[in-house]
Amino acid sequence: MGWLAAGEGYEISLVDGKVAARSVRTRGKQLKTLPKALREHPEVERLRRFAEWLDRHAAACVAQVDAWMVSSLPVPAGLLGRVWADEAWQIALRDLVVVGDDPDEPGFLRDVSESGELRVVNLDGETVKLSAETVTFPHPVLLPDLEDLREFAAELELTQRVEQVYRATWVKPAEAELAPKATAVQEFSGGRYASRFRIAARAESLGYRVSGGYATCRVRDGGRTAEAAMWIGEPYWDGQSETGSLNWQDENGRGIALREVGPVAWSEGMRMAAALYAGRTVENG
């Protein structure tokens, strides 16, 4: 953004998200710190509030795109055309794998026109136009060419603001490998923490919801909502606590048999459980 007059002999602007100042007397050289005379200036305060709003807006864009991706929701291409001019939306969307009418033709999103026509780079390295009424940003566990996409992304040195191709995924075992009535996974049970508070704090820092004695992750998978829930200990318990079993529930709170858990809900639930188990206390030796 441009520089604004603030106080006698100074101008201010946002540089890398922070309020910076320069002196008119020194031919516009940016100062290392904000002068004391400007710290309480009304223009500085307004610019600080604007910077905070930009941070919240950027975080909201990332959260929305992440929700589209995790649930593989159809997104109107025209909507992408309208928001693309906003830098925060561009950063959240650029380089994500996107598909249109043909799910077997994925590509990395590079640009969107005002009319909603997408420019993508496909696995052949060609930049092609994608015209579709709606598009999806598939969850990585649903991408049949995931390994090829990962290799190509590394080759192009692409960086995704919303974690997609490099997102940790867990493929659901074949139905025959799961007991017919099994409802819980014990693989990540027994992760000991000094307190239940620390497990909850880790869960919340990773973006998961804590409700009662569980850390939860809600996902829309295949047209229905499923919530993965992992036991983390009784609320308000101040002693040592351990991670427990992982199970899934439908939107009415009824348990879902493991055989009936969708691939995305399975992967996201296991991802949550693995992340919480990884933060456990590990004793030397």
Rank of each mutant, 00 (worst) to 15 (best):
G190A: 08
A226K: 05
V264Y: 08
V97S: 05
G233L: 09
R49M: 11
S189I: 02
L123F: 05
L4R: 06
N247W: 13
A229P: 00
L130E: 00
V185D: 15
S23I: 04
K18R: 12
A51E: 06
A60G: 13
R22V: 00
A58I: 03
R198S: 12
P42M: 07
A200Y: 04
A275N: 10
G2S: 12
A85W: 06
M1S: 02
S195E: 12
Y214T: 09
Y277C: 11
P235S: 09
G125D: 01
V65Q: 03
L80R: 02
E8N: 10
E268V: 10
E175W: 10
R198H: 12
L156D: 07
V24N: 02
G213R: 11
A77K: 02
P106G: 03
R196P: 05
H41T: 04
E268W: 11
V99Q: 01
G116N: 02
A203T: 03
V83E: 12
T127D: 07
V210C: 01
F108T: 04
S241P: 06
T127H: 05
L80M: 05
Y166M: 14
A275M: 10
V62Q: 14
S211R: 14
L79R: 11
V75M: 00
S13K: 10
E204G: 01
A88Y: 07
R22P: 04
S245K: 15
W231D: 09
E268A: 09
A59K: 14
A85C: 08
M69H: 01
E133Q: 01
D104G: 10
E52H: 12
Q160T: 03
A63D: 13
W84T: 09
R224G: 04
Y214V: 02
D238E: 15
R119A: 13
L178A: 07
A60K: 07
D124M: 07
L178R: 12
V120E: 03
G239V: 07
S267H: 12
D221M: 03
V120D: 03
A6H: 04
N252Y: 13
L73Y: 01
L31N: 04
E268G: 10
V128Y: 01
F197T: 11
P42F: 09
N247I: 08
Y193K: 03
A37P: 06
N122D: 15
L258H: 10
E204Y: 02
T281F: 11
T243W: 07
L142M: 01
G239A: 12
A168G: 08
R192M: 13
W237M: 08
V264E: 09
D102V: 05
A37Y: 05
M69F: 02
K172T: 08
A174I: 09
L14I: 09
G212Q: 04
A215E: 02
A229C: 13
D124P: 03
A273H: 10
S189V: 10
R22S: 00
E234T: 15
V99E: 00
R224C: 04
V141N: 03
A168L: 13
T169R: 14
L246H: 07
